[in-house]
Write a protein that binds this DNA or RNA. Structure first.
Lengths: 228, 228
DNA sequence: CGCTCCGTTGAAACGGTTCAACCCACGTGG
DNA sequence: CCACGTGGGTTGAACCGTTTCAACGGAGCG
């Protein structure tokens, strides 16, 4: 099963006219990757735009020392590789299949042609980029202005809100990956989870976490309190 | 003196047709701010797009504890406030006059109207946003993966390249601000500058810095060496 | 069973921040 | 003209959060 028959379900392509959708469908190429496989690498020349169709894709940077900072984990419907597309030049980060996945690929030339034809596609693209900038700004704030407990608290609250599953959060990534997502390392994450547990803020059960005290977490995320 | 007569000199507006430029000129409003004055604050509702006309504007975030992370310092020709414009909602950061300055303001509605009319304006906007995303990705990498000496080295090299002034770099901001730009504090910056001085990497003279060993700095920036 | 992978825990080391003192250049006002 | 305050910059010492290194435990699996 894939989603190609429903291009209009992808947020980037919603509200497009059917003619436009057909054009896109024509230039689109499906590509499959197995878990861990590299899709592109930071510095490669940007040759087009990708959209996750099935599975998940990890966008990340790696330091010479080998530490990894995950920028995004994208699921179906999310575009990536678009920076190189519009700013020209190369990919600013690397992409890898986080799970086995299928992606839609639109060549640079073809896609730009489509954008030129239909301004509403440009508008959607602007919205996508803006949201991404907003997310980056938040990440920068976290990395620079908050310590790890604050970032973790913010992330847990974000997850609970996104899933809408109330106070029970299920981590869909390993704790090691969560650490990279938060800009830290597994050991530190483990300690902080234990500490939050001890303080009665959360209850950790494997990869499911119960938020016992959302207000307390909120205070942590806002930097109003510290985790002693 | 201002630049309004030459809207087409602004990168965002280059290659637009004259009719389009006239439309923009019509909806534009000039605003003046004195050094330190707040232009907008994180969380405010985004009411339009700004372009620096004269002087400099600082875009930043502040932690509850009062620490500041500067995201950008924009000079003439740079747009800001555009995220809220396209992603809807509120400003993700605050803006303040870094020097006395004059900015051009385009109301949300009017500007979107112009974008709708002329796809090439949308293209320019996409390029601007993409470059900004690229810059943010680099900043995230720096904050998360590099230590302060590496960030400083990278910044110095960046400045020397930008100014094209060879190995002599003149800081156009105070060292305190540079610290905030690098995500650290004045004391730390001072110590590291002193250390680099001692190691013969640079020579500091007030706000002018001589890069004595660009290759050494490069190694630092890439994280291949550490500053002992 | 023994292997690996992931997560956890402890102790030591490190980088950066905090707090405080101090210097210097500069401008203001007595 | 000098006294004084102010803001930017520097330096030292203590402190703190995070990382590093190393060891260990459990789950899953050939």
């Amino acid at each position: 099963m894939d989603r190609c028959g429903r291009l209009e379900d992808i947020p980037l392509f919603e509200d497009l006219e059917s003619e436009q959708l057909q054009d896109l469908a024509q230039i689109l190429k499906k590509q499959n990757f197995t878990r861990g496989q590299r899709i592109f690498t930071e510095g490669d020349e940007g040759n087009g735009l990708y959209v996750v169709d099935l599975g998940q894709v990890k966008i990340f940077k790696i330091s010479p020392a080998g530490k990894e900072q995950i920028l995004h984990i994208f699921g179906p419907g999310n575009p990536f590789g678009e920076i190189a597309m519009f700013a020209g030049e190369s990919f600013p980060a690397s992409a890898e299949a986080f799970t086995d996945c299928q992606v839609l690929f639109f060549s640079r030339h073809g896609f730009l042609e489509c954008v030129r034809k239909d301004p509403s596609l440009a508008f959607n693209m602007l919205a996508v980029l803006s949201r991404r900038l907003r997310k980056f700004a938040a990440l920068i704030e976290d990395l620079s202005l908050k310590e790890v407990p604050g970032r973790l608290a913010a992330h847990l609250l974000y997850l609970s809100e996104k899933d809408g599953a109330g106070d029970k959060v299920k981590l869909e990534v390993s704790k090691g990956h969560l650490a990279a997502l938060l800009g830290t390392i597994p050991e530190t994450l483990s300690r902080i989870l234990a500490k939050m547990n001890r303080q009665g803020l959360i209850e950790v059960n494997g990869s499911t976490i119960l938020l016992l005290d959302p207000d307390g977490l909120e205070d942590l995320a806002e930097g109003e309190v510290k985790l002693t």
